[in-house]
Nucleic acid binder design. Structure first.
Length: 219
DNA sequence: GCGACAG
DNA sequence: ATCTTGTCGC
């Protein structure tokens, strides 16, 4: 699929923040409720700046792999909380461009709306591709939430400035929750439903686990 | 000033 | 993110 990464790439914190502010109004918080194919995206770092990005497209019905791609590169921005996406975006976009199929949903490793400026990696990838996207984080990063009940499926809202920007969602009984937020063209309930459905036996959704494995081990 | 801070 | 084994439980 084709993706247009913005030209010139930001070279300062102020420029990167300005990009987020400029793209944020494009985020749509409603969209499809069912998806035939789902892509997981992740990045593995080796050394200081070198990285491998991976995308794995699965059939939503069977969780079988449809297609996958990797891209090697360097972190494209220093690590600044809130600007995390700028490190990985070029390599992730390159992965997506190597796909011959267009996935119906992007499952990103990180946050979407649950972000200091309401524009995390999942929003950024969603807006650049125009595809529905959601973010799954492994740690609470922004806002506040109560721990959900210990049963799989239990959730609590992540609240930021009085608004629900995501949910802490238990995907396995008695295991730490994941933190789900909308990226683009998806409702929060749909996003959580997809994460649950895509995580039948592990804490993290299968597409993200596959992408993580591909980025780390090349398989 | 110090700690916190998606990956 | 990364440095890292075995172990317990489903």
């Amino acid at each position: 699929m084709r993706v247009n990464l913005l030209h010139p790439w930001p070279t300062s914190v102020a420029e990167a923040e300005a990009v987020q502010e400029r793209l944020r109004p494009s985020v749509e918080l409603t969209g499809p409720t069912a998806f035939a194919t789902v892509a997981g995206l992740d990045v593995h770092y080796h050394g200081d700046e070198e990285l491998t990005a991976a995308v794995v497209v699965l059939s939503a019905a069977t969780l079988e792999v449809v297609e996958q791609a990797v891209a090697h590169g360097r972190a494209a921005f220093p690590y600044v909380p809130g600007l995390f996406a700028f490190r990985e975006l070029p390599a992730l976009v390159q992965c997506l461009e190597r796909l011959t199929v267009t996935p119906d949903l992007l499952v990103c490793d990180g946050y979407g709306l649950a972000h200091p400026r309401g524009f995390g990696l999942a929003c950024h990838l969603g807006v650049l591709t125009g595809l529905p996207a959601l973010g799954v984080g492994k740690t609470p990063f922004v806002g506040s939430c109560e721990p959900p009940a210990p049963e799989r499926g239990a959730w609590t809202p992540i609240v930021l400035e009085g608004a629900e920007v995501g949910r802490a969602l238990r995907t396995r009984d008695g295991v730490k929750p994941v933190y789900v937020s909308q990226g683009h063209r998806i409702g929060l309930g749909t996003a959580c439903g997809q994460v649950l459905r895509l995580s039948p036996h592990a804490r993290l959704p299968e597409p993200v686990r596959r992408a993580d494995r591909l980025a780390r081990h090349g398989r």
